[in-house]
Design a protein around this nucleic acid. Structure first.
Lengths: 301, 301
DNA sequence: TCAAGTATTTGTCCAGGACAAATCTATGAG
DNA sequence: CTCATAGATTTGTCCTGGACAAATACTTGA
């Protein structure tokens, strides 16, 4: 049986590294070093694909690619190990150890029960304002430290999503003002931020219309008008390419009627430079305040 | 104020047409014909981006790009109009007219109520087996005819997702065999197929662990082992590039332990050529039968 | 110690060529 | 006339190798 080789598209799919970048790495750093088929096309062995994923993870921790790719495999592996120090600073880890433990034990049922229990004991508002952000951060950091795998993060997201949707669905349907249109831009596929804001705003009596993730800009504008939205709210995760966020938001602001407010939030735009006509939120608490401001402004008219 | 121009990445994001393909169209057909900035980089005006989207939609109806791009704008616009004939053959449209009507009226609340009503009057099983596929098809066909916009399809998907998740969450948690791992491959972001199968299988007492959409192949394998899955089930929508499905499934089959069954279904693999060791499902009913077969086989041991 | 200027690193773009898979078209057999 | 097969055309994706701007690291002087 022949060894499995992946073509460049498959590697882009698996790792999230663009084709152009894969070729550039090969040209500059000599890694990856794929085989070639009869037609001269690249075929990547599985171990190289694994190493690409490892490098990408380390890059998200701040390491630079040139540095990483000049390192021998052993040192790379050493970097990927969670540091003793990182463990030590995990003072807060006790707070959500249950969740990470269940994740590592692959106990989906237990994790689901745990999330539901937290939700019911805290109430939806406090769960969303305090617990969920803390858990998201804990899972994200564990992933960066290499303690959990991609599929474990998927499982967490899926179960949290089910929990939040269950809670939102149980709320009495709101029909009051403002009307918020919720979505993310293309390439941003993380949905938890949307669900958190939907839960909070619905609790406050605002009407939320969610389009889910990855709506083209033109369609966000069309939807905002068709739905007579007062506010368009976008969520950006920490994984969103930071350079793209600014221009994208500016472009949307330019295409949206001025009367419609644009709110953006999430780790991907936290501490971002302010933009004219855009309300930037660093925390979920900001969203509640912005809602109060909107209602004040409207009452004053 | 200067006219808005989009760079080639933004156009790929907006339209789903790869950069390489955009350049090739320009080279071969003279369309699109973007402007250039100082550095010689392409900047696409919005009306060309709209036309690209229109062309993509017509291509999904079977038109070929070379043909379309040689056509003057008027003829292109004419093709995009729903034909009188198409309207006439919509005999079944009366059956779900409510849903499409609500969508076109942008009545999110009404649509949500309608879906919930259908769910409760039919029961979850019949809703998933009959109603949801019919609605999905109706919405998909309406989109192909240009009758509904991308954001309207997003809204439908989001509301249907909320309805299904609500129903699944209300079921008693199953813990029986088999254990199914549900997910989609990278690039396949449609989630409704997963939720439908999750609902059906949970009703039958099987344990479903969903990873949500777009899990890398390597992680599907890891998750299957970690979760001690008996079956891995993948969903492919009609939008999935048909040429990619076969190799992808074959590769996963090769990397998965033989003892774990691989089920694939959805419009993206319907009428696909059979693959060794892979159970191909054309309908949801097939999944129920496959479940019965699995249980028979297991009882016989 | 910090700020400003310079050098390096890095990702994404470009042109233009090649080829294989998919699709269409023409030809010939039954 | 229907159908299958062979050949031509269309189409998407890959290739090389070059360029440049933004982000980051480093150096220098206050």
């Amino acid at each position: 049986m022949s060894r499995l080789l992946m073509n460049i598209s498959a590697v882009e799919r698996e790792t999230g590294v663009l084709k152009d970048t894969l070729r550039m790495w090969e040209r500059r750093y000599g890694f990856p070093q794929p085989e070639r088929d009869d037609g001269g096309e690249r075929g990547y062995p599985l171990d190289q694909v694994e190493k690409i994923r490892l490098i990408k993870r380390l890059m998200s921790k701040g390491w630079r690619p040139g540095k990483l790719m000049s390192l021998p495999d052993e040192e790379l592996a050493a970097l990927s190990q969670p540091l003793a120090m990182a463990e030590a600073e995990g003072d807060q880890s006790a707070l959500q150890s249950g969740v990470l433990d269940q994740l590592r034990k692959h106990d989906a049922g237990g994790l689901r029960d745990l999330l539901r229990h937290d939700l019911h004991s805290l109430g939806l508002q406090q769960f969303v304002l305090d617990k969920v952000p803390m858990l998201n951060r804990a899972v994200g950091e564990a992933w960066e430290r290499g303690e959990i795998q991609v599929f474990e993060e998927h499982l967490y997201t899926e179960l949290m999503q089910a929990t939040l949707r269950q809670a939102i669905g149980a709320l009495p349907p709101a029909s009051g003002r403002p009307r918020l249109l919720l979505t993310t831009v293309p390439e941003e596929q993380h949905v938890l931020g949307l669900l958190m804001i939907e839960a909070l705003m619905t609790l406050e009596g605002a009407t939320c219309i969610s389009l889910g993730t990855q709506t083209p800009l033109a369609d966000i504008c069309r939807a905002a008008e068709a739905q007579q939205a007062d506010i368009v709210a976008l969520s950006f995760s920490a994984a969103f390419p930071p350079r793209q966020a600014g221009p994208l938001i500016g472009q949307l602001r330019g295409r949206l009627p001025e009367a419609i407010e644009l709110w953006v939030g999430g780790a991907g735009v936290a501490r971002h430079t302010p933009l004219a006509g855009v309300r930037l939120m660093n925390t979920l608490q900001d969203a509640r305040e912005a809602l109060a401001v909107w209602r004040d402004g409207r009452a004053a008219q």
